[in-house]
């Protein structure tokens, strides 16, 4: 039996009391050893910041294990659940505090965060990925990165920059236009 899917609709402008939650961007508590900030700006086709976008991140831990742990909404300050959700602010900025993912055993892909972008004016969410520059060999062998022209692959690479709490990475999302982020049509499954 194959059922037809329920169509997507925009998240609209008023998701703020429905979806964001306390600590939604804190995959780890402040002061955690090895914590990084991942932050950036979401921009539209005119380069203007998008103040009503919502980003979700899903990732493995530094040990390469994919969490299968409840508590993503009710953060207990100890468990690494691998899930974050943050709205952009008035300047289109977002930030999450997390740990860099390690390589997943048996995965063809280099360590990455899976990202979903929602926004007012976006009728169907967009999938993308964040890769990190400190896995040069795995990145070179990554089937997606390898298949993209260099300047497009660069849109998926987090850029190291400072953060008052330690190392930080910038990952901007350009929804349209020059430097447009690579968005994915995820099919089947690699193994």
């Amino acid at each position: 039996m194959t059922l037809d899917p329920s169509p997507s609709q925009t998240v609209g402008p008023f998701f703020a009391f429905g979806l964001p939650f306390e600590g939604g961007g804190d995959l780890v508590p402040p002061g955690t050893a090895g914590a990084i900030s991942l932050h950036g700006t979401v921009r539209d086709g005119a380069g203007a910041p998008v103040p009503d976008a919502l980003l979700e991140f899903w990732q493995a831990g530094p040990d390469g294990r994919i969490p299968a742990r409840a508590g993503s909404l009710a953060r207990d300050g100890r468990s690494f659940t691998g899930f974050a959700r943050v709205p952009t602010d008035r300047s289109g900025d977002y930030a999450v505090r997390t740990l860099r993912p390690g390589p997943i055993a048996g995965s063809a892909e280099a360590p990455h965060l899976a990202v979903t972008v929602f926004a007012r004016g976006l009728l169907h969410h967009l999938f993308t990925r964040v890769y990190f520059p400190n896995h040069p060999e795995a990145n070179a062998a990554d089937p997606l990165l390898a298949a993209l022209p260099e300047e497009r692959a660069a849109t998926l690479m987090a850029v190291p920059d400072g953060w008052f709490g330690g190392p930080g990475y910038r990952f901007d999302v350009r929804m349209q236009g020059p430097g447009e982020t690579v968005f994915l049509d995820l099919v089947g499954g690699s193994s």
Binding site: S107, L148, L184, L186, V187, G189
Partner: peptide, 10 residues
């Protein structure tokens, strides 16, 4: 959109 197989993570 760039067609890609879903990773183990995804």
């Amino acid at each position: 959109l760039v067609v890609a197989p879903a990773s183990l993570l995804e």
